[in-house]
């Protein structure tokens, strides 16, 4: 059992090392800088520029957070501070079910619900033509996918705020909303940031749902109505043919390594913050 536990801890590093080992050949031919900055993606001629994919990932993730964070903050505050326990009893299972829905289902929903809305109603107001398969669509689908993690962590964090602190503000004659705005949210800020970072990293790595709705155009998007091609989608779409072209597999493994490192760091930081909050206020 000791061995299993130690093995599981070192497993984190094993993944990193394994991916690095497979991606290493790529570094012989390219500098890290050129990999990040170059926009040229032509595996058959040995050109691997990750810039469009990194931008695609950033756009989709950013949109998802911009959509999801305000909604989930409001929902979290409502559920912990205002809602009757009956509302809470209904909402929390709903959020749990939402968390259990597989990515591919989100993708199907995205195709039949979000894509047409973007194509027919949203995009025509701003731009000439859009297929509906855009980074905006991907962002919206992702936003719904990160609802559960955001709502549940935000609620958990808000629950750790001592009642006496709220009472102190209330007894000075502040309204409940003023108390929430000026005291509760301020005190909860580290936890909310940690939750956001965690949600960002979830969004970063999400593959199939985004791949199905965001167009997969290997060009850095310039507006929300452009298609995009996030890193996970790149890996998923090209894994089949990668063995036939030299360095292609290394390039895809590099993409996986990139995801791993970013998400590893994000998770590490936010988990440390969250654990600290829990320790500080649970005793």
């Amino acid at each position: 059992m000791l061995i299993l536990s130690i093995a599981s801890v070192s497993f984190v590093f094993l993944i990193g090392i394994g991916l690095y080992w497979r991606a290493a050949p790529l570094f012989n031919e390219n500098t890290l800088y050129s990999l990040f900055r170059s926009s040229e993606w032509a595996p058959s001629s040995g050109k691997f520029g990750f810039y469009p994919f990194i931008m695609g990932t950033l756009w989709v993730t950013l949109i998802a957070i911009v959509v999801a964070l305000p909604l989930c903050l409001l929902t979290g505050v409502y559920l912990t501070e205002y809602a009757k326990s009956s509302v809470r009893r209904v909402m929390l299972p709903l959020v749990n079910i939402l968390a259990g829905i597989p990515p591919v289902i989100y993708g199907v929903w995205g195709i039949f619900f979000v894509v047409p809305i973007v194509r027919e109603y949203v995009a025509p107001r701003f731009t000439e033509y859009s297929s509906g398969y855009t980074v905006l669509t991907g962002g919206v689908v992702l936003a719904v996918m990160i609802f559960p993690i955001l709502v549940s962590i935000v609620s958990e964090v808000l629950k750790t705020i001592p009642k006496e602190l709220k009472d102190a503000s209330l007894s000075l004659g502040a309204t409940k909303w003023e108390t929430i705005k000026k005291v509760v949210l301020k005190r909860a800020l580290p936890g909310i940031i940690a939750a956001t970072v965690l949600a960002v990293s979830r969004a970063f790595g999400e593959t199939i749902a985004v791949l199905m709705v965001c167009g997969n155009v290997p060009v850095a998007p310039t507006s929300v109505f452009d298609g995009g091609y996030p890193l996970p989608a790149l890996i998923a779409n090209n894994f089949g043919e990668m063995m036939s072209i030299p360095l292609y597999d290394s390039a895809l493994m590099f993409a996986a390594l990139l995801l791993f490192v970013i998400i590893f760091l994000f998770n590490l930081v936010s988990r440390i913050i969250l654990n600290r909050i829990e320790h500080k206020y649970s005793s």
Partner: peptide
């Protein structure tokens, strides 16, 4: 460190697990 490791592993996206398993 084990708790932290599992929290982090929990956040690793499935495509990375897929890629890693494929390497193995």
């Amino acid at each position: 460190s084990a708790k932290l490791a599992f929290d982090v592993l929990f956040g690793i996206p499935s495509i990375v697990y897929g890629a890693f398993a494929f390497s193995i």
